[in-house]
Design a protein around this nucleic acid. Structure first.
Lengths: 204, 204
DNA sequence: GCGTGTGAAACAATTCACAGCG
DNA sequence: CGCTGTGAATTGTTTCACACGC
């Protein structure tokens, strides 16, 4: 627990969290690992093992208290607070993302929008003025931004990602259809619909 | 090879494919497992092991012929042809997806748009008339659609997914922020930006 | 009895390291 | 030489099965 849990476990925690949040909103008070696992698509044993990496949250003979477990996972993931996020790229995808209500509902607030196209700088999208990337580092610091969403064309994505890392970003969500090569201490999640589709066609 | 390769390998193939396509377009003819692996973020040994599940594609002492390996992976993934795709959900997300040029560039064509909102049925988005889901099975068959993109609100996503399975869909790309529970023979990829963000905040 | 937490066992994925071939 | 393809070794993940406490 002093060192980090495996990546694969960390990536499942948000799924548990979402199912628990849904259950809590419905007023369900208790759930077993079997039932929660079924809803998320993992085995009961795996769910218990995953949670055991972070502590003991259940009650023997009973199960897990939904609200308590939800709050514990929120704490573990550090999503028990608001995160400010920078959006890089004010194209069609950027427009869709800045208005994507699901981010806000889960306490991720796009705070600042950057683009390097002079025609876009100064325009307003989603209520935010598009900024040049010139003073990137300073702006991120001033706005307390630690996460960036990369929504720029593939052919400039690596360069922009390098700039973000240079500016101190340690976590980023990449929507560009390209594999970024970045230092190990930068955490990248890749949203890659085409790769996802290409993986499913294999099975058809 | 007569049975299926592991999921985790299949999900890496699209990354190899994309890097190879980029290299081919630049005119590079040969690449080593070391260099291709570096670009995709996997070890040279892993890349070679992955490919070895499907055949022998390299040349000893030399490396891989870029165009040849690209075409082989296209064949393995069955993306050496066009796929017709149905989009379910004509909301803001659906609008963004139907105009997402990256799908088309990689030969996934959204062919048909469904929505159950009477106010949307009959309207046109991305050049396509929004249809009711009443004759879902028949329409999918008529249009030779085998893949669906689910872009409906979370609270109806499970029901709509059940309807799609009922209509014969075996592969789907889920954009709804919910874990779908579906039969094992249905292949689901989940696009889940919030879960991705929640996983990276763990490390910050 | 029921369901968690967890060592032990089984299984899966990755890396090592080298034979073999151009 | 250099680099692939691949068994063997290692490392990582999942499942099993049961002691323990409610």
């Amino acid at each position: 627990m002093s060192t980090h849990a495996p990546d694969i476990v960390v990536r499942r925690l948000p799924l548990y969290l979402r199912a628990l949040t849904l259950l809590a909103d419905r007023g369900q008070e208790i759930i077993s690992s079997r039932e929660l696992g079924r809803r998320v698509g993992v085995s009961a044993a795996q769910l218990r093992k995953d949670l055991s990496l972070f502590g003991e949250f259940g009650r023997q003979g009973l199960g897990y208290e939904v609200v308590y477990l939800r709050d514990q996972i929120r704490r573990i993931l550090q999503v028990d607070r608001i995160w400010h996020v920078a959006l890089i790229g004010a194209g069609a995808l950027g427009h869709a993302l800045v208005n994507y209500p699901t981010f806000t509902r889960w306490d991720f607030f796009i705070n600042t929008v950057f683009d390097n196209d002079p025609a876009k700088i100064g325009t307003i999208i989603g209520g935010l003025t598009v900024r040049s990337m010139d003073r990137l580092g300073k702006t991120l610091q001033a706005q307390h931004i630690e996460i960036a969403i990369l929504a720029v064309p593939a052919d400039v994505a690596q360069q922009v990602a390098d700039d973000l890392v240079e500016a101190g970003i340690k976590a980023l969500l990449n929507y560009a259809p390209i594999s970024l090569v970045l230092p190990d201490d930068v955490h990248v999640s890749h949203i890659d619909p085409v790769a996802s589709l290409q993986a499913v066609t294999y099975y058809l």
